[in-house]
Design a protein around this nucleic acid. Structure first.
Length: 106
DNA sequence: CTAGTGACTGTTT
DNA sequence: AAAACAGCCACTA
């Protein structure tokens, strides 16, 4: 099912702590796949419902939730899951990366 | 093998 | 500030 690249991506996403978010590009870089942000989105879309991977902590470079396909259902779920972790959204439905971006040590 | 697609992003209009 | 463009590459048909 999952290739080597997907596993690396999942391993990075799993390290994002509660109350923090990472961007697709950031996850790609940390997984050793610089410049392949789209692959991260592709890998997350392949996750099954109920997966243990904290997929909801990954947002786009603008600090917005990026889920275009599902009519907004999963997007609303992602927002709720993040708000439960006390991640705040502004009036334009954006998260301040300045405040909530995960900054792993080296 | 080729062509189309997409939970993206940095740069340029 | 917002939209268009051009790279990016695994996956599917």
């Amino acid at each position: 099912m999952s290739g080597r690249r997907y596993e690396r991506i999942y391993a990075v996403v799993s390290r994002i702590p509660r109350g923090r978010v990472a961007t697709y590009g950031q996850v790609a870089r940390l997984a050793g796949l610089a410049g392949q942000a789209r692959l991260v989105g592709y890998a997350l879309s392949a996750l099954e419902t109920g997966s243990r991977i904290p997929w909801h902590r990954v947002v786009n470079a603008a600090g917005e939730i990026s889920l275009r396909q599902d009519g907004g259902q999963a997007g609303r779920l992602q927002r709720v899951l993040l708000q439960r972790e006390r991640v705040r959204f502004d009036a334009r439905d954006r998260i301040s990366l300045e405040r909530f971006r995960w900054r792993p040590r080296s």
